[in-house]
Design a protein around this nucleic acid. Structure first.
Lengths: 225, 225
DNA sequence: CTAGGATTCAAACGTTCGTTTGAATCCTCA
DNA sequence: TGAGGATTCAAACGAACGTTTGAATCCTAG
């Protein structure tokens, strides 16, 4: 037993991952060089390749670290709601809250770096690089499939295609909102301080998404179904 | 008068811009090198710097070429709706259709490259590079301000902050949907052929956005207002 | 026809990128 | 305490990047 602080099992790895989350969020994957990244993490330039193998492998590890528990939490939240509902069909709002809630919880975790990650994740949905998109899609697949089933049960009268489209719209709203940075001022008059009030944001998002998800079908869409 | 075809006034410029739209959409700004870009446009490597000055200036020119007329069309569509309504307040759906319609019209223009641009634009909302985001925000400012006023008139009982938030959500849904590529399969079971049917998509989007925009306020949000 | 600006071209510039190397150092366990 | 694997380190690698250069070519106006 040494007298020094408890030995950090993977201190270098963790410092790299934390710095990467912040820098990737700020400058993107291609816009963040290994030199800036390792300097910011206060580790040697070769450390990333030693611990992760390559920059791409670092990106993958970064997503897995956060996404695996987040996905598990999302599925758990859904199943908890289903258990509480007994055998009855879930209200759309309950499903939305289960899904949105987990993102916002991470967003409130500014100190643990969760906010950096959630904003990074939001912008990665539209990442041009194919391997990264493929990774995200693969990591997300079980969650989306699970929520899709739940939504189809909750909206029994809606065509299956329409449910998928509205899930798509929902992801868009969520990821765009999460990705928004203080620098984004597409709409003038934004009050940035509100954005970090997760409780308020959850209510705003839920109201919007819930109404959108359960909106009556346009006749043209009905005909196409 | 020469016997050859009518001389193209800026043929090289146009070829570069068209190739850039496609490649930037596929690989992003940083992911597209000048060598790939000029080779794809069948022009000399130095042509971009000669005609535009730099890669960044090319990006700006690219956005201006499409965004300026698109913004003008969006404002014209809104004012046309307002004229038709006489003095009466506009229905939220009319405002949404004015806004969404222009994007989708460009999306149907696959041959003229409009589709490439609209997908590129969708993903640029979350672009990490600050100068590009700033440019987009600046080019968009008049449009967002104009639509904001229209929405506030159409939703007189909604707190101003909430209107801004819901505009924000609306942009998110739209840009994410437009940015979606065939490679994005976050939700399994997507029918990609539907995505290019602009008429159908407009109805789907309008139904979703309209309901979201006019959704009743959550009590917690009401209290904060 | 020809002078002169506009455009294209091949080649090279300096910089930065992700990665690799091999020696130096640290830490653990016998 | 000392051997040996794990980790860190400074330095360098080749490749790719955006940009610049100066000559060659094209096009047009007088």
């Amino acid at each position: 037993m040494s007298l020094r602080a408890v030995k950090p099992p993977h201190e270098t790895r963790t410092r790299i991952l934390d710095a990467a989350e912040e820098l990737f969020m700020q400058h993107g994957f291609e816009g963040t060089s290994m030199r800036l990244l390792t300097a910011s993490a206060a580790v040697n330039l070769a450390a990333v390749n030693y611990h992760f193998g390559s920059k791409d492998a670092l990106i993958e590890a970064l997503f897995r670290r956060r996404l695996d528990p987040m996905n598990a939490a999302r599925i758990a939240a859904l199943e908890k709601a289903e258990t509480e509902a007994g055998g009855r069909a879930l209200a759309p709002e309950a499903i939305i809250r289960a899904f949105v809630g987990e993102s916002l919880r991470l967003m409130e975790d500014a100190k643990g770096g969760g906010r950096n990650f959630i904003r990074l994740l939001g912008r990665t949905y539209t990442e041009p690089a194919k391997p990264i998109r493929a990774l995200i899609g693969q990591l997300y697949a079980p969650v989306t499939a699970r929520y899709r089933v739940a939504l189809e049960r909750a909206l029994p009268n809606m065509p299956r295609d329409e449910v998928v489209w509205r899930m798509h719209f929902m992801f868009g709203t969520l990821s765009y909102t999460l990705a928004a940075t203080d620098a984004v001022q597409l709409i003038a008059g934004f009050k940035p301080e509100d954005r970090h009030d997760a409780r308020l944001l959850e209510d705003r998002l839920t109201a919007f998404l819930c109404a959108g998800l359960t909106a009556p079908l346009k006749s043209a869409v009905k005909k196409a179904a």
